[in-house]
Write a protein that binds this DNA or RNA. Structure first.
Lengths: 207, 207
DNA sequence: GTGACTGTACCAACCAGACGGTACACCACT
DNA sequence: AGTGGTGTACCGTCTGGTTGGTACAGTCAC
């Protein structure tokens, strides 16, 4: 068992949701997946809602931390680009990024699972997400670049999350790469002083 | 009771999900909302999955119809712009567009409710959505404009759906309008012949 | 036209299983 | 002996789905 039983349980819950859907997130199933009895599980999370709250809050906290890590303040659009990078790097269960995080001891890799669980069980548990988005939107709009461009980058990132959440086919690799490059370029050059800005595309710009 | 009992039931289910969340989508609750007994409900939809399948398929069909209506083929990017318009016009339960559709006899207004129900209950019911997205992505990539731009428009649209699905604050009206105008402009001017395209912004372009 | 029969629409009552949650015993370690 | 952590057993409720009907409109042979 890992140093932190809570993380073990959250990771088990995330795996379960990723594999079998939010419907199958039952206390019994989570306990089994985490190799724990239901009693043991309920010692760490007082209720099912509490467990989902843990998933959601961990997700938000991890995303915030990722943005923080990627952000190099100073240049306009830095926060927006960090937001983009954090989205792209988000560890979707079943991918390399997932396994990497899982193995590196930086907490469980959750992907969209917490969102799915909250939507399925109790939408009011999404309140931390709503609150985080208010904060993120504020940061995007005051990032030194055109707020419309920053918001489009955000929406496109949300689109990537949406794709993960409902299990759509991921974009083909080259297209995905080109899209990210384009968004990144847009968040670099969209000066807020202009009313009408252009979003230059530079598909092969290295990171 | 409306001419079509199935539509009545689907609308009731959508209202229920919008009001109380996908968790509350029980056969008893849907029956009560539709003023019907559970037996009567199960006469029209053989199972709960069948009901959710109805929600999902109706959603996809309505969206397709909306795109079809908005699309004026001929100019490059026409399909992409129609996709954008269909997203923006999608009747979210509880809004004007919702009530309008509901009253106009064009079938129930579903918003994201079918997606939420499928995510919550049985992700495999999302297969029609996945299939639709494959089709939509093909259309976007062969719309006579730069595929990267078209895909970004799609992702931003998905972001708007995501916002609806998890109940985030909608964008402030002016920003929302500016974002849509910008996306629309991008889907108008991004010629596919160029490797690197620009996305001119024209925030006050009338529709 | 009338009685036998059929198909559609709906309903009330019930059931078996799943699920969240509780109670409490147990055990290792300090 | 006490505390953190875990396991077992159980309970009440919820819920999807089944069963066995009712009501009634249509239709078709006679």
């Amino acid at each position: 068992m890992s140093a932190n039983a809570r993380d073990t349980i959250l990771a088990a819950a995330a795996r379960l949701i990723a594999r079998e859907g939010a419907r199958r997130l039952t206390l019994d199933a989570v306990a089994a997946e985490a190799r724990l009895s239901k009693g043991g599980l309920l010692y760490h999370f007082a209720s099912k809602d509490d467990l989902i709250r843990g998933l959601v809050e961990t997700l938000v906290a991890q995303f915030d931390a990722e943005v923080e890590t990627n952000s190099v303040p100073g240049t306009p659009g830095a926060w927006t680009r960090a937001y983009l990078d954090a989205t792209v790097k988000a560890p979707v269960p079943g991918t390399d990024a997932h396994a990497t995080r899982e193995a590196s001891g930086h907490g469980p890799a959750l992907g969209s699972t917490g969102i799915a669980a909250a939507v399925a069980n109790n939408p009011s548990l999404l309140e931390p997400v709503r609150e985080a988005y208010r904060r993120w939107q504020r940061n995007l709009e005051s990032d030194g670049i055109d707020p419309v461009t920053a918001t489009i980058v955000r929406l496109a990132c949300d689109g990537l999350w949406y794709t993960d959440l409902i299990g759509l086919d991921p974009l083909p690799g080259p297209l995905n790469h080109a899209v990210i490059s384009r968004l990144r370029a847009a968040a670099t050059c969209a000066h807020r002083t202009e009313t009408a800005t252009t979003l230059p595309a530079d598909e092969n710009q290295p990171r």
